Amino acid sequence: MTRITALPTKITRHLQNGGQDAHGQPPERAISNGHGTPCRHCLQHIPKGAEMLILAHRPFAEAQPYAETGPIFLCADHCMRHDSTELPEVLTTSPDYLIKGYGADDRIVYGTGIVIPQPEMMQQAKTILTDERVAYVHIRSARNNCYQARIDRDEPG
């Protein structure tokens, strides 16, 4: 079983409250046009006309050579974090995605990266997670390499 892991609420609230992004800058504020602006916290499309944040995000605890940093969107207003094993709609709207496995050391596990058709993404992620070297999988845009979310093993409770 796998779980889609959205951006943590603590990080999101920090940014929504004017905290600095991965480049040490406050997030830019903009108005969503309703297309191509998925919030990385609620994993929903930011509605047309709603205020949103644009910022640099590094989904890794430490800066290191494999710690990719790139632009993401967040709802400007507080939103509820996606917390489900269900695939959110925002991860069904592209024909394909780039997925790749990372080790517990936050380094890419070579041989796991693939641009894959969206309908095959979750099954391929499950296959990648069978590799003992892989701790989690990132979902990224196949066209712009933007971080979307993370896939983790859903540990039995």
Score class of each variant (00 low, 15 high):
40 R>N: 01
51 E>G: 05
134 V>H: 10
137 V>P: 06
67 A>E: 01
96 D>S: 13
139 I>H: 00
23 H>Y: 08
111 G>A: 01
33 N>P: 08
70 G>A: 01
89 E>C: 08
58 R>T: 14
110 Y>N: 07
79 C>L: 03
49 G>A: 11
121 M>G: 07
87 L>C: 12
62 E>Y: 10
84 S>N: 10
57 H>M: 07
128 I>P: 10
36 G>S: 13
46 I>L: 13
32 S>G: 09
107 R>W: 12
21 D>K: 09
32 S>A: 12
83 D>M: 02
68 E>D: 04
69 T>K: 09
107 R>D: 10
112 T>W: 04
98 L>H: 08
73 F>R: 02
47 P>E: 08
138 H>L: 15
28 E>F: 06
109 V>D: 01
140 R>F: 04
26 P>W: 10
71 P>S: 08
94 S>Q: 15
33 N>Q: 08
27 P>N: 13
26 P>G: 09
74 L>E: 02
26 P>S: 13
66 Y>T: 10
129 L>Q: 05
144 N>I: 06
43 L>K: 04
83 D>T: 03
115 V>M: 14
102 Y>V: 02
117 P>C: 08
117 P>L: 07
134 V>G: 07
129 L>P: 05
80 M>R: 14
105 D>P: 06
56 A>P: 07
137 V>L: 11
78 H>G: 12
62 E>S: 09
31 I>P: 07
44 Q>T: 14
26 P>R: 14
45 H>L: 13
24 G>E: 04
22 A>W: 10
113 G>Q: 01
76 A>I: 00
116 I>W: 04
68 E>L: 06
80 M>S: 15
44 Q>N: 13
97 Y>T: 04
142 A>H: 11
46 I>W: 12
107 R>Q: 14
63 A>W: 06
41 H>D: 02
59 P>H: 04
27 P>Y: 09
97 Y>L: 07
76 A>V: 02
42 C>R: 07
135 A>C: 04
34 G>N: 15
100 K>V: 00
103 G>T: 05
123 Q>G: 03
21 D>R: 11
112 T>Y: 02
131 D>E: 08
104 A>Y: 01
68 E>F: 03
84 S>Y: 05
145 N>V: 13
80 M>A: 15
88 P>S: 01
38 P>E: 05
52 M>H: 15
63 A>V: 09
84 S>C: 05
94 S>C: 12
138 H>R: 13
66 Y>R: 09
87 L>N: 07
130 T>L: 12
59 P>L: 03
112 T>K: 05
